[in-house]
């Protein structure tokens, strides 16, 4: 079997160490060695966005990165956004309020993407929202609730100075 490379990264604030072949994807490392099963694989070719995570604050597709490329990096997955077990992040709250999800499979990627998008653009127009989330695919909602949720989250985060 191929050589196992030691890996270490900070995932949702905790140091996670593991071993993997050079070809191990970041998505598979996060799912299988860091227990972040909220990282979902919808296409494994970088289009659907379900596997989106933040790497040192930037939204990336974890299916298109090898785990070794993230060695030493700080990773935030959807599991790392809510402040505690009883409270949702404003983006998560907005997705719930606005019915921005049905089956929930694409949702982690959308939530992470929208959080990053609002970080970069705290006061987006509707057109900017639609463009900003067009890198993620959802097959259930027709995007109606997702656009509305992004609007709500923008307003809430702006109001609370979170963004």
């Amino acid at each position: 079997m191929a050589d196992q490379i030691p890996l270490s990264m900070t995932v949702n604030g905790q140091t996670r160490r593991g071993l993997g072949e050079a070809r191990l994807t970041l998505a598979d490392f996060l799912r299988e060695q860091a227990h972040c099963t909220g990282v979902h694989l919808g296409c494994e070719h970088g289009v659907c966005g379900s596997c989106t995570v933040l790497m040192d604050g930037e939204a990336v597709r974890s299916c298109l990165l090898f785990a070794v490329q993230a060695d030493g990096a700080g990773i935030t997955t959807v599991e790392g956004l809510a402040p505690d077990d009883e409270t949702l992040h404003p983006v998560q709250e907005a997705f719930r309020d606005c019915h921005g999800l049905q089956c929930g499979f694409c949702t982690p990627g959308f939530v992470v993407s929208v959080a990053a998008f609002l970080e970069a653009n705290p006061d987006p127009s509707d057109e900017e929202i639609r463009h900003g989330i067009s890198g993620n695919l959802c097959r259930c909602t027709g995007y109606q609730g997702i656009v509305a949720a992004t609007r709500q989250a923008a307003a809430v985060m702006k109001g609370s100075g979170q963004s």
């Binding site: 799912r31 972040c36 099963t37 909220g38 990282v39 979902h40 694989l41 997955t77 959807v78 599991e79 956004l81 809510a82 949702l88 998560q92 997705f95 719930r96 309020d97 019915h99 999800l101 929930g104 499979f105 949702t107 982690p108 939530v111």
Partner: peptide, 20 residues
């Protein structure tokens, strides 16, 4: 329009799909 009981686990990545 009762808020969905499914959502807290799904929006936080704590759903359990078959690959999990």
């Amino acid at each position: 329009s009762v808020k969905r009981l499914e959502d807290p686990r799904l929006v936080t990545g704590h759903g359990r799909y078959v690959d999990d």
